[in-house]
Design a protein around this nucleic acid. Structure first.
Lengths: 342, 342
DNA sequence: GCCGCGATTTAGATCGATCTAAAAGCTAAA
DNA sequence: TTTAGCTTTTAGATCGATCTAAATCGCGGC
């Protein structure tokens, strides 16, 4: 207080230049690490920068250079740790490349998502990584491309358009899961899917049907519920006493899988003995329940890394060929899976 | 392709002004919703904006106006869903105020955290919400304030300096937990804390001791471990057979609590019957394990909302009095807690 | 008809960097 | 000594908005 009456104003490149006895342009070359400046000039400017406490102004720089050194990420649901890990993977690569990340939480709402896209455009982000909210319209990505925005889709894709994509190969893990069930003698297998419609939703369902057909099993039931622990537990309660219920269940994700586990256990149906359960995503909690929940492992962190790399490449070379990257998935067996009771 | 050979260039306020037949300055007043412009002029400009497909350039605006309409958030660990919920709370308020959020993941590393602070300053964020990484030095916040950066601490605080803070009142929930244990006849209670040193770590320990003293109980053991499921399970394995082990455990967080639950269960020590367990944070998973893990409920989303409000206020009025906000916590009983075995 | 006053509108400077194109320095060849 | 050809440095325009201070427009009162 009172030390300076004027609102404090940060030193600019001009101040640095003056201090170092060079021109603004030369100082600018130094901050950009251009090879054009002489060694002693560079040293003098760098010393001056420290001396005056210079802080680079990315905004001003980006204005002239027409790039913000900023990207945007739109995530549908931050309270799912799965997306937290994805985000951490993205951040690692993006930060390593010297860019900063805007984050937005769509809450699975396409309307909110559109709002964020506008905001990101206003902020002039250099590119966007999107995991589209369930129910996103087919025109979403084409519109972004029409605006010249570099885009990468992660985990989910909409509209089937030609756009870079980083996701997972659902089939490998699904096949492993179904194969194991077949081996254990299960022939009536149910699938529980979520009522959020997006590409991963469909892919897992399709992968399930394909794997079942491949192993000559019949899908007794495909049920769709809201992906919450409580809804899944309620479903298990209904199934616990049902005649001709499947002897094994595969679930769209671990939230549903853990919920079924809860519901069955509470009704005296022991997973791994009376019913077999398999989830998807292999989150940390699958190890905590007794018996442990078998699950298909996916690598959200790795997918984040790939998505970020794709985006950086797209920003660098906007006309590069579209690339689709998938990381493999694999079945992780735990005690929730057992031989069919006979 | 080929429609325009020139690299596409976004329309500017100048284009809008020309289209509407007004000056750049007037158009600027319209986008800023100034009451100075006449109704029909405003309408004409707004029509022109839509007509030319105008996108506001926040960067350019911020340059002159010396504010970026941007804030930064530094989070220690995105894979913990607790922080995801915090982030969602922050985002809701910040977005509502028309600002965008930069997010950074320190991974509990003070060095990475410093790097992010630099990046945020370079981007000219209007303020910062920080949940300081464990081990952050006492000078961290004072340095930020010296730079004139509006700061709010969330969940954790370092250096005890005068700075806005949004956190939780650990004592209420802790007291509820200890009171219930006393009522059930436990008199030997252990506490498991984490080896990550930050204010919340200390607060919970202090709250534990105070509550124990208040209820005339003795703290048999205070153990410090790495906060992972596996470490906690290993601890439980060691304790399962130990003579004079506590009859009840309270844990720094649910990760440790769930890990103990796992370890005890695997060694035939049944939570709620042979030992009582209480966690902290009341994450969704406490309901999934059998018996359910009792826990102290905290509200990360609510804390995020408060932190965001504090920051917006601080940005608005930099000289406002420092405010410390805490949301109450409360004990949530589940079957992992039971009467001491006689 | 002229003046004053509130309501609108505007020209021009400005924010802090980058870009372009040209100037200045330097060495070595003619 | 001059010149060609580097390397290094620089002046000045520029990005797209906001700000300041002044100009312009209407309109009622003298």
């Amino acid at each position: 207080m009172g030390e300076k009456s004027a609102r404090q104003t940060r030193p600019t490149l001009m101040d640095v230049a003056k201090k170092a006895g060079v021109s603004r342009a030369t100082a600018s070359l130094v901050v950009r690490k251009s090879p054009l400046v002489g060694a002693e000039t560079r040293a003098a400017v760098e010393a001056a920068m420290i001396d005056v406490g210079y802080v680079y102004n990315v905004g001003a720089a980006g204005m002239r250079a027409a790039r913000s050194r900023t990207i945007g990420v739109i995530i549908p649901n931050l309270s799912n740790p799965f997306f937290g890990v994805l985000l951490a993977g993205i951040d690692r690569i993006v930060d390593g490349a010297g860019l900063a990340t805007f984050i937005a939480h769509s809450g699975e709402s396409p309307a909110k998502q559109d709002g964020f896209v506008t905001r990101m455009r206003e902020h002039g982000v250099d590119g966007l990584i999107v995991c589209p909210a369930a129910g996103t319209g087919d025109d979403f990505v084409p519109r972004l491309k029409r605006w010249g925005m570099p885009v990468v889709e992660a985990l989910r894709t909409v509209g089937g358009g030609a756009v870079d994509y980083a996701g997972m190969d659902q089939r490998g893990g699904m096949d492993g899961a179904v194969a194991r069930l077949a081996e254990l003698g299960h022939d009536r297998v149910g699938f529980v899917t979520a009522n959020l419609y997006h590409s991963a939703h469909d892919e897992r369902l399709v992968a399930f049907r394909a794997a079942m057909a491949r192993h000559g099993l019949q899908a007794v039931t495909e049920i769709e519920i809201a992906p919450t622990h409580a809804e899944a537990a309620a479903l298990a309660a209904r199934m616990a006493g049902a005649a001709d219920a499947p002897t094994a269940w595969i679930c769209h994700n671990d939230v549903i899988g853990l919920g079924l586990h809860w519901g069955f256990s509470d009704h005296g149906v022991v997973p791994g003995r009376d019913v077999s359960l398999i989830g998807f995503d292999n989150v940390a909690e699958t190890d905590l329940v007794r018996p442990g929940l078998a699950s298909v492992a996916t690598e959200p962190g790795e997918i984040g890394v790939l998505a970020a790399r794709l985006l950086l490449r797209r920003i660098e070379t906007p006309d590069a060929d579209v690339e689709i990257l998938t990381v493999p998935t694999h079945f992780v067996e735990r005690a929730s899976v057992g031989a069919v009771r006979g």
